[in-house]
Amino acid sequence: MTNDVQETAAPAPGGVEGRAADLVQRLLAVGIDGRGPFDSAAEVARAARQRHPDTEAAVSAVVRQHTRLVAGNGFVTGLGGLLTMPVALPANVFGFHVLAVRAVAAIAELRGYDTSRPEVRSTVLLTLVGADATDVLKSVGLPTGNRLTRLATSRVPRPALMLLNKGVGFRLLTRFGTTTLVRVPTRALPVVGGAVGGAVDAVMFRRIAAAAQDALPPTARG
Rank of each mutant, 00 (worst) to 15 (best):
G198F: 07
G177N: 06
P217H: 00
A210Y: 04
D214Q: 11
F176H: 10
F176V: 03
T174A: 10
V203Q: 10
G167F: 00
G198L: 03
R206F: 04
L163K: 05
V168H: 13
A210I: 00
F170A: 05
G169V: 12
A199Q: 05
N165A: 01
T174W: 10
V191N: 08
F205Y: 07
G194L: 09
L164Q: 01
I208S: 02
V196N: 04
T178F: 06
A210N: 01
L181M: 15
T186P: 08
M204G: 10
T174V: 02
D201Y: 04
V184N: 01
T186F: 10
Q213P: 14
T180N: 14
V184F: 13
R183E: 02
V196M: 15
L163H: 07
I208Q: 12
N165M: 01
A211V: 06
A195Y: 11
I208E: 02
A188C: 09
F205G: 13
A188Y: 09
A199F: 07
A215I: 09
R187S: 15
V200Q: 09
L189H: 12
T179A: 12
R187Q: 08
A212L: 05
L173T: 04
F176W: 06
G197D: 06
Q213G: 04
R175I: 07
R206E: 13
V182E: 05
P185V: 15
V168W: 02
T174Q: 14
T174P: 00
R175W: 13
L216M: 02
P190C: 06
V200D: 10
V196C: 11
G167A: 04
R206Y: 10
R175E: 13
L163R: 07
P185A: 15
G193R: 05
K166G: 01
F176I: 06
V184C: 07
V200P: 02
V191S: 04
T179G: 13
A199N: 06
Q213S: 10
T180P: 13
A211D: 08
I208F: 05
L189V: 15
R187P: 03
M204W: 13
I208V: 12
G198S: 04
P217V: 00
Q213E: 15
G177Y: 08
L189I: 06
T186M: 04
A215P: 11
T180L: 09
K166W: 01
A212Y: 07
A209E: 12
G193E: 05
G198H: 08
R175A: 08
R207F: 02
P190Q: 02
G177T: 13
A202G: 05
L163M: 08
V168F: 02
P190G: 02
A202P: 12
